[in-house]
Amino acid sequence: MTDLLYWQALNRAMDIELAEDDSVFTLGEDVALYGGTYRVTEGLLAKYGEWRVRDTPISENTFTGLGVGAAMLGLRPVVEIMTINFALLAMDAIVNMAAKIPFMSGGQFPMPLTIRMPGGIARQLGAQHSQRLEVMFMNVPGLRIVVPSTPQDAYWQLRQAIRSDDPILVLEHELLYFQKGAVDETAIAPPLHQAQIRRAGRDLTCITYSRMSTVAQEAAAELASEGIEMEVIDLRSLSPIDWESCVQSVSRTHHCLIVEEDCRFAGTGAEFCATLQEFCFYQLDAPIQRVAALDLPTPFNGALEAATIPAKENVVQAARKLMGLNQGVSQ
């Protein structure tokens, strides 16, 4: 067990997979010489050479398409798209090719393709570089999407993604790269798409993922000091979603709070909410609540940017409201 930064855990996972399987290779902008924008491929060019760690021109649809083709022929490409915002340029390769080919070929072509994408709102990268587009990919059948929130999950889930024969998007949060956490390389990984209870609680269930999982845990600590025990479920995967873990928890707490960094309107939380009420309607003691980002392009100004996404206080307030505790006397 060692303490690693999130990027180091990903780097370690890449290193092991490249070492263990000759068919694994990685490509993308600045992955080789520069070592990756967030250092995830650092040192790999020297170790594995330019055939397996390959810089590409700024041409997302092309190099992602190259990954699709390589996967069809039996290689295990790991494509890095510098941020999820640039994936908009690679939509045809991802949506029309990677997600469709295994189905349209009747399973004749596998698609062992991994696409890594940093995303989420970092610090003042502007509206075009601060999008959370996971919901777009969730709406594409045929893709799997994982959203590791800890170095351990980053390590496990990237390795599992590379070994999978399905196209998998690994969405890494830009503010998590320099978070430190324990990584046990000998521990047996939980199933790729299984949710994890980050904090147990009896009063309400908070369903969240990626960086918001850490925000929710901070909120849960504060709520605990007020006597509200909030369970925090980190989904770890957005497609498929581990509904069973969610339903089990909500059936115990009868209260459900969804926290997402995505925009509220038609965001990921909308899907969680809709499906959970189908499963848990008779277990709900209050309407499911969502804490989400504001529905607007992210402002560049730092204070305004922070105001658009959920913070700990928003989660605490929403939890209090959900528990019917926010009705103090206001004069």
Partner: peptide, 10 residues
């Protein structure tokens, strides 16, 4: 909205 929660009714 009128009411009682689904869980309360159940």
């Amino acid at each position: 909205l009128s009411g009682s929660s689904p869980y309360a009714r159940a």
